[in-house]
Structures are given as C-alpha cells and as structure tokens.
Design a protein around this nucleic acid. Structure first.
Length: 536
RNA sequence: GCGGGUGUAGCUCAAUGGUAGAGCGUCAGCCUUCCAAGCUGAAUGUUGACGGUUCGAGUCCGUUCACCCGCUCCA
C-alpha cells in the first residue's frame, strides 16, 4: 500500500466513513464472506465465500475472462493497430520444483529474518552487515543496515564510544551478519539497540507452502504450491506457440489459486494466504514493449473504472525505479492500480500490477531447463530476394497485468457499501448491475388474487434468460418493504413487482435500488430492460 | 514476531462472582394493493477453546486460537 496522493483526499471522505467492522459484519450476515474453518476457531489468512460472495467473485472473474480473453480487450486494437490476441491456459498449482528455482522464488521466498528483542525491529538477515575493530575477537560487534549511511554511521559511533576513541577506516573490519557464529551474535549490538545479544538467530520464513508428492514422505519429493500463476504460463509458452496459431505479439491468460505463507495476514481478505489471481502474460518484441506496457496500463485502469470503481478511490500509480522487482529493473516500468480501502485510507492498496518483466522469466527457464525458448518471428528481419522477411529469433519481452481477484471482490464490496439512514435497511450494496450477484427479484405484491402465479411466470422467463449471469430471486413472504430492504442489502439492482394492475393491463412496477424510484412498464418489456441494464 | 484491543444467539450488544438477556434478523400463522407496518407464536448459546481459583466463573488468573489497530514484513 502507499499513501501517495493521499494529500488530495480531503474532498471525498466517503471511504473513511465506512467502517470495516460494519462491512465485515454485513459480509457475514448476508453470506458474502465467512471466516474459513470458523467452527474450529478459524485459521489465519483463509476465508470462504458464501452464496452471494461466490457469485460475486464468479461475476468478476467472468467479466475479466470475457473482456480480456474472449473479446481481446473488448475488441479494441492494440498499439500495432491490430486486434489484441489473447489465449487462455489452465496450468497446475503444483509443478516441478525446478520451476520455482528458475523463477527465483525458492531463493527469494526464503529470506532469513532477524528480530531484535530490544528495539522490536525486524530485519532481513542478508541486509545486515556488522563492523568491529580489526583483530578484536571479544569486544562488541555492531550491526547496521547495508547501504544505509545513517545506520552505518550510527554503528561507527557506537563502536567509537565503546572503544573510547575514534577509529580510522583502516582499523575497522566489516562482514555480513549471516557469517557470524552464535558466539559472535551474542556480543553483537543491533542496528537500533543499545545492548548486545538482543538479535535472534536468523530464521527462515517459508513464504512458499510445500507438500510432498508420492505415498512415501520423502523430502526429495518436496513440491511447492505456486505463489503466482505466472510461471505456469511461462513454462507453457513454447507449447502454446507450437500448437496454437498465435504469433507475437499475443498474450496468455489464466485465473487460478495461488498461495503465499504471508508473515502477517491482515485486513480481511486483502492479504490472504490462499488467493486467486487473474494474470496475463503478454509477449511482444523488446522494441514494442514500451508501447504495449502503456496500452495495458491504461486499459486495465479503464476496466476497473467501468466495473464501478470510478472516482478518486481508484488511482494508477507508477512505481519509482528503486522499488521495482528484480525482474523489472531494466524494463519500461511497473504501475499499480490501487484502491483506497477503508483500512488503507488515506493510503491505497494494490488491486493489480502491470509490470514489464522484460525477457527475464523466459531466459531463466531457458537457462534452467536447457530448452530453447526463443520465438521465430517470420515478420521481422531483412527482406529476402523473394520479398519475404528473413525472420528473427528472439526471446519475447513480457508485459504482465496481474490482478488479485479476491482484492477486486473486496474493493467492489467496499465501494458498493453505502450507508443510508433514510432507508429501511440502513445500508445498501450499490453493485454495478454487471457484477451484482443477484440480478433481479420478482415479487407478488400480495400473496393472493393470482399474483404469485403471474410473478412466477416472470421469474421463469428471467431465470431462463439471465440465470447464467446471476441469481433471480423470488419472494412472496412478508411485507413488500421488507422484501425491498432485503434486496438492498444483497445489492440486487432491480425488483419487479406484480400487483392488481398487472392482472388488468399487464404492467409491472420496477423499483430501482439506488434511487428507490418506482415506475411501471409492460411485463413483456422487463427482459429487454434488464438486458440493457446488465450490458448484454 | 512485538505491543495494544476484542471475543456472549445469525447480526449488534447487555448481564455487582449468584437462574444467560434484549433489539434486529430468521421461521410459522394472521393481516396487508408498494418500502423492514401491525398482531400472535417459535427456533437459536458447552458465553472462542483448554485449564486453574472458588460453595459457585460470562465475570478473577493462566494458556491457547481467531479477529481488529499500531509496528514489522510483503521475491
């Protein structure tokens, strides 16, 4: 998360006034999200989706799948002036562990950490350096943070004070903290500590979950649950190229679960240990990477806005060069689509990252697997005598728009949550009709005079036409006000009510969730009305 | 991992160490021609879990689990 652009939030404080506790209570009450394993006391970092949540999540996933994959960025042309080509993939959660060695995750996800008992600080062990007087085996050693001048200066100062004199650079010896033995660690003073021996032994944080394949528990058969779906795409790059009539530039898209053993799962579903990603790896020539990066960055922002995350709660943030991931250092850049959640406000939390990963991943897999990953581009190269291009072999660059499905759902829920003291439910969920889990409700005004039968006719028609997009509710119990109120809390955009006039002239009342306005229309027009509202 | 807070019905919350309750919601019935109306009734709890002190623990103590906030972390 970041608090960039946080300074401009004074005019709209709608999000800040939304209580995350209230939102979580509604999620439980209406069956959007439950704590996983709740009856056994829960389990940290895992959440289950209830009936409404599951449908909401599916609607968001479907919207992504349809717009990205099936329609190739909603049918628009890419920067090359041609339709954007995307093909789907569904790769395994568990792969050969060498995949994660090649990707850097085995090394990167095992950073040993050191805690300081005195200052309560935590450091990455490989980021800590130590200094002491040359040749001194027993005097105190001072730890400092690598390439942090202030931290180094503080350590030097502490050393001088301990030795009661100012040491010259030549008299000082430095080494990595990870090279220290237990004895030496006991006489080491932490970067933010005054006393020696307050640093713990470096402890590995296993950020990848592992398990074991085969019937026998043998460490040699250790495998990992994927921490990102992306690698499944990279390792299938050649398969797709060889078996599908796609040519660079093109993308491979995939949705699926990923797992990260987060040190501190927090903020409802925002940082879960099991989560679902929606990832595109878009392959293009290095020369075109910058244009494609800009294209994806802009379109992905637009996409989230079109789903209802409009306004100033959504921002696009380009990363500073020094905070880029290792694979993106040399690229055109990385940008995040970020949403201002109640728990991040006035800062923002990441929904999707668009990164230029260069050719890093394909190169890694080419090196580790010793399989050629280069693409033969027959549209490039010098023209041959017969007029055809000579062709060019290269490792494509990758633009990766990687979105968090669960984070998207959470943002949609937070955005939709709208307190309204003037209405019966006191709150309603203002979901965009396209992603609303319940698309419409049909009510007989009273349970007599043939109204339930008539209402059932309409219900049946709507289920047949729209049931694949979401639920069509039918309710004949209790007062009409209660039924409207229930639908408000579930976020159903339109309710259709059959009354005495319906029996006489065939018109029904349509009630709008957001405005609470009511108007009449012929029952025969309802399906057309709903189709238009759902964007079908 | 550290510090602080919280945990009682589906939800929001009460309950001096002394019989576990209310409102809302849910369900059933009556009533009802457009916004949780009205009436009647019903179901729902090992008070997060385990242990201890006590004649007696939702309440006090210990441990543990989960959630929230602040650090930390987030290839």
């Amino acid at each position: 998360m970041t608090d960039a652009a946080a300074a401009t939030d004074t005019q709209s404080d709608t999000v800040q006034t939304k209580s995350m506790d209230d939102i979580m209570a509604l999620c439980k009450r209406r069956g959007f999200i439950f704590q996983a394993s709740e009856i056994y006391g829960g389990i940290q970092g895992f959440w289950d989706y209830g009936p409404l949540g599951a449908q909401l999540k599916k609607n968001l996933r479907d919207a992504w799948w349809n717009d990205v994959v099936m329609m190739g960025c909603n049918g628009q042309n890419g920067p090359n002036g041609k339709p954007v080509e995307i093909v789907p993939l569904d790769s395994c959660i568990i792969q050969n562990p060498k995949v994660w060695e090649a990707s850097g995750h085995v090394a990167g996800f095992n950073d040993p950490m050191v805690d300081c008992r005195e200052s309560k600080s935590r450091y990455r062990a490989d980021h800590l350096m130590c200094l002491g007087e040359k040749g001194d085996k027993e005097g105190q050693i001072y730890a400092y943070v690598e390439s942090d001048d202030d931290s180094y200066a503080a350590a030097r100062k502490k050393l001088d004070k301990y030795k009661k004199r100012t040491l010259t650079d030549d008299e000082v010896d430095t080494c990595a903290l990870t090279d220290l033995g237990a004895d030496e660690l006991a006489i080491t003073v932490g970067p933010d500590a005054k006393e020696a021996g307050t640093l713990t032994e470096p402890r590995a944080f296993n950020l990848m979950f592992d398990t074991i394949t085969g019937a026998i528990r043998d460490e040699a058969n250790k495998v990992y649950l994927r921490p990102e779906t992306a690698q499944g795409i990279f390792i299938n790059f050649k398969n797709v190229v060889d078996t599908t009539r796609v040519g660079v530039p093109f993308g491979i898209a995939q949705t699926g679960k990923a797992f990260r053993n987060e040190v501190t799962p927090r903020n409802f579903t925002f940082r879960s240990r099991e989560f679902e990603q929606m990832e595109i790896e878009f392959f293009c020539h290095a020369d075109d990477a910058e244009a494609w990066y800009a294209f994806w960055r802009d379109w992905r922002m637009q996409w989230w806005q079109d789903l209802g995350l409009a306004g100033e709660n959504l921002i696009m943030r380009e990363h500073d060069r020094d905070e880029l991931a290792h694979y993106a250092k040399e690229g055109a850049g990385t940008a995040d689509v970020e949403y201002r959640f109640p728990f991040t406000a006035p800062g923002y939390g990441e929904l999707e990252g668009i990164a230029h990963r260069t050719e890093f991943d394909l190169k890694q897999h080419q090196t580790h697997s010793k399989k050629k990953m280069e693409y033969h581009d027959t549209t490039r190269g010098e023209p041959l005598p017969n007029g055809q291009p000579k062709g060019e072999w290269y490792l494509p660059h990758v633009i990766e728009p990687s979105a968090g499905l669960d984070r998207g759902v959470l943002a949609l829920i937070c955005e939709a949550y709208t307190p309204d003291p003037d209405r019966a439910s006191k709150v309603f969920m203002k979901f965009h009709p396209r992603i609303a889990p319940i698309k419409a409700a049909v009510f007989p005004l009273v349970k007599k005079d043939g109204m339930p039968e008539k209402a059932n006719e309409l219900r049946r028609e709507l289920v047949q036409k729209f049931g694949r997009y979401g639920a069509i509710e039918f309710d004949e119990k209790q007062s009409i006000g209660k039924r409207y109120a229930r639908m408000d809390e579930a976020g159903c955009p339109y309710c259709f009510t059959i009354d005495g006039d319906t029996m006489a002239d065939g018109t029904v009342t349509v009630r709008d969730r957001d405005t609470q306005d009511q108007s009449r229309m012929p029952m025969a027009d309802v399906a057309g009305f709903l189709a238009e509202k759902l964007g079908l």
